[in-house]
Design a protein around this nucleic acid. Structure first.
Lengths: 193, 193
DNA sequence: CCTCCTATAGAACAATGTTCTATAACTGTA
DNA sequence: TACAGTTATAGAACATTGTTCTATAGGAGG
């Protein structure tokens, strides 16, 4: 499987990101090494320094990609804001379960020397804004009254994130996980005055 | 600050754990190295292998200590179950903010090659049981009806964990953090039918 | 005071992120 | 087609990491 021919420039970036994500999905942070990623992508280790700013550059790219993907996942828009709320909650959990590698970078692990840049955090903020917009549409029909949309969105996001993160790291004591998650969404829907 | 005299056996274990926690609180996972811990504790690096099973042994001990401390923190018991519920929620957040190092080991980082043992997970489960007991007391006076106490406790724990974890890792878009957390607790209190 | 236990210093190893160098493979242009 | 510039590659090299091993010496108990 070792390639001796060189890889075209345009394919190195995407290939590295894909390989890094595959490793993270399969092995978690432990397997996430420069040499392993390069081998999986079929490129030289140096490619990670020429095309990204080292491992941190790869992490930055995946962090951003993660919040962009999450943003898309929670972007549903029908004529029923309440149905959209439930749908968005379910989509959030699906995103986390289907993209454990991205979710790990975004929330579940502090990689050595890595801090997301201001730009990356801005992408995260825009994903949050999508939730805020959902809440505002719900508030127009009387739901989630009595609090700012931004704070309501933070509460909802917190609950969803808490549930799926405990699930992903293996500390979840509910036996009926799907039902309990739905119970949480319904509780949030009902709980705001 | 380098000690050339040897440290009494009985003081090595506690000293290593204290030093490890101080480093984790101050520098996060990046500073958590065998040599740094040993230096801070004033012992030889080998002590970490003689008194614990390497770094994983230290992590295991702190993981357990974390859930024991959390268990104590959420153990409040008055004659008012609803007040206890709110108090427990606030205590959970206080624990996380005052013990970021422990919270990191418990929830926010996957340390290399570390998986908590069955016994350690059992300690975590007992902390969860304390929450379940709270919920059961509330259910006796009519709150949190319509769902199993175990699942209700999981929902509440998820929300609290989600909020404080997003807060600790710096992805929290609420400006009034105390108020928003209180809002979340009230929403949970009101939301179950 | 002697003996045993064990904390210590230090070397050593593999694996890690990172940098540097020389070479060779591709790309575009004359 | 042939040449020149770009850049992907291999490989060595370095510091830092977890971990193991060995020899030494400090301290406690008989």
């Amino acid at each position: 499987m070792t390639k001796s021919t060189r890889t075209p420039s345009t394919q190195i970036g995407p290939g590295v990101l894909r390989a890094a994500l595959e490793i993270l999905d399969a092995e978690g942070p432990d397997g996430f090494t420069v040499r392993a990623i390069a081998e999986r992508a079929g490129v030289a280790p140096m490619a990670i320094y020429n095309h990204f700013e080292g491992l941190n550059g790869v992490l930055e790219a995946l962090f951003t990609q993660g919040f962009e993907t999450l943003h898309e996942a929670v972007t549903v828009h029908s004529n029923d804001p309440i149905a959209d709320f439930m749908q968005t909650g379910l989509a959030y959990r699906s995103f986390a379960r289907e993209n454990p590698g991205l979710y790990t970078i975004m929330f579940l692990h502090r990689f050595r020397n890595f801090e997301p840049s201001i730009e990356a955090l801005h992408v995260a903020a825009r994903a949050h804004q999508a939730l805020v917009a959902h809440v505002e549409r719900c508030q127009k029909i009387g739901l989630f009254a009595g609090a700012g949309a931004n704070d309501v969105a933070q509460v909802i996001w917190s609950a969803c994130h808490g549930y799926v993160s405990l699930e992903l790291i293996g500390i979840n004591f509910s036996t009926k996980r799907d039902e309990t998650y739905a119970l949480m969404l319904e509780t949030l829907r009902n709980g705001f005055r």
